[in-house]
Design a protein around this nucleic acid. Sequence first.
DNA 1: CAGTATCCCAGACGATACTG
DNA 2: CAGTATCGTCTGGGATACTG
Lengths: 126, 126
Amino acid sequence: MTEPERRSHTPDTAASGIERALALVGGRWKLVILFHLFGGRVQRYSDLERLIPGISQKMLAQQLRQLEADGLVQRTVYPQVPPKVEYRLTEWGQALCPALDALLSWGERQPGGPRASHGRAVRSDT
Amino acid sequence: MTEPERRSHTPDTAASGIERALALVGGRWKLVILFHLFGGRVQRYSDLERLIPGISQKMLAQQLRQLEADGLVQRTVYPQVPPKVEYRLTEWGQALCPALDALLSWGERQPGGPRASHGRAVRSDT
DNA sequence: CAGTATCCCAGACGATACTG
DNA sequence: CAGTATCGTCTGGGATACTG
């Protein structure tokens, strides 16, 4: 049944652990940013701005700051006349990739599509 | 580097695919509910209410409805004098478990703890 | 170039009360 | 028992403008 961490997690600790993890990625633009950084890619602030149409500067900066504070991305500032800042993933950030991959695969395995099955008083006889 | 779906996903499609998946689980209580259902466990409405202290009836009902509409849980109504409703995971819902497990493991592999590393103007010479 | 600073709003969430 | 209905709150995110 592949229950997660049956060895050391109650339903509540497991849930909160995952919520904690999801919170790190929960921003409106975090995933898009991460996916532009996966695979060791390095991007400048302006690159990301260009790669992510529709994002505002406030949002880009904010999400990057949070990703940095949470240890997923590494920020590198070059003290130059026109400022230059690069963003790349940390080891740990890169390690998120397989987990997201699993989630993506699960999502795409979705059968049929969301159906509000009405729960037709079927008795428990299968 | 274990990039997710390098075969058929752009950063944007991958991100939106995962966002779609996360949205299904994104409610304040969805994960807790799911973890009380993983492993084939079947719970009545009142069971969940008891198992999840702090949740309001409105929230419990709402989150369950959404999980049902999204095809993660199966709702079974028994037309009896005192109503009886059971909730269990669908196959697809159960299949979420390993993916969440991966996420949980990743979260617990977190090194050091969140550090706002200041990005000390290191030049790109590695 | 690479950000900050304000203002504002929609939607998520919580508390409470009522019902078939 | 298993929900709905209603109301108030709070936060994430968008638009816009300004700066070292």
